[in-house]
Design a protein around this nucleic acid. Structure first.
Lengths: 131, 131
DNA sequence: CTTGACAGTGGACTATACTCCATGGTATAC
DNA sequence: GTATACCATGGAGTATAGTCCACTGTCAAG
């Protein structure tokens, strides 16, 4: 199929598909062209793009997805590698959650100070933030 | 003081200070120069940079900080505006927390499938992610 | 034939927060 | 004088994930 059809089937823009191709996430051998040099995208590329979409939804970056494919994009792919990859991402998310919780605490501390009239401005600098 | 001293006192690089100045976060009137055209940064700029550092630690972007200063960078500044600003940021953080929690759930769902041997590869596509 | 849509390629742009590079001037120590 | 560090300015580069622009070619419909 041509890129327009692929775009429609995946919901990705043509530019996005070209971007992924340029980035190496999908591969098109030179011979997969029509006579007018238009690219004939095979079903495998459609499948791969759908996978990219799903994996991106799970919070993976394009670079991570690239590494992802290297790890288990072969015929020998197994769920062991995948478990490892997913566990790593869960860890990342946990760390982010931790950081956000801390940030929220700090914000609430400053808020408390502000609300309790302890806050004052010294030379446009609010004490609830700087002390 | 010169930019090197300011850099040392704030922990920010010279380039970062110049970047903030270019971005308008700190202001240097043209007349605050030495005879050799070197900039003479007053104490107020040091104070402001320290505030920027603190506010960035609270999760605000530089653009947000810019708006921040407009709201309560005047002599009439009060904690009312500040409370509003901080509450908004807490809300943002809460939303991010929500998104991350959902993401974690989805990851754990895929992980569960993977671990339970329900997972299989169809044409390099793992079913735990695509089904 | 003309027009409009589609396809291809390469490059620039967007947003964010810096960081690096190039060039030229200033000041100090050897 | 030389070397080194500091200062100034402007512009490019980095990372990420696209998006837009310019140009050329192809194809189908009017």
């Amino acid at each position: 199929m041509l890129i327009g059809e692929l775009s429609e089937k995946t919901g990705l823009s043509r530019d996005t598909i070209r971007f992924y191709e340029k980035k190496g996430l999908i591969e098109m051998p030179k011979k997969l062209r029509r006579e007018n040099n238009y690219k004939e995208y095979p079903e495998t590329v459609l499948n791969k793009l759908n996978l990219i979409i799903k994996v991106k939804e799970l919070g993976f970056t394009l670079n991570e997805i690239d590494t992802f494919f290297e790890l288990w994009g072969d015929e020998d792919a197994s769920c062991e590698n995948l478990v490892f990859t997913l566990e790593n991402k869960v860890n990342q998310v946990d760390q982010q959650l931790g950081r956000l919780r801390q940030l929220k605490e700090r914000l609430n501390e400053s808020l408390q100070k502000c609300r309790s009239s302890e806050c004052e401005f010294e030379k446009t600098i609010p004490s609830c933030i700087c002390k």
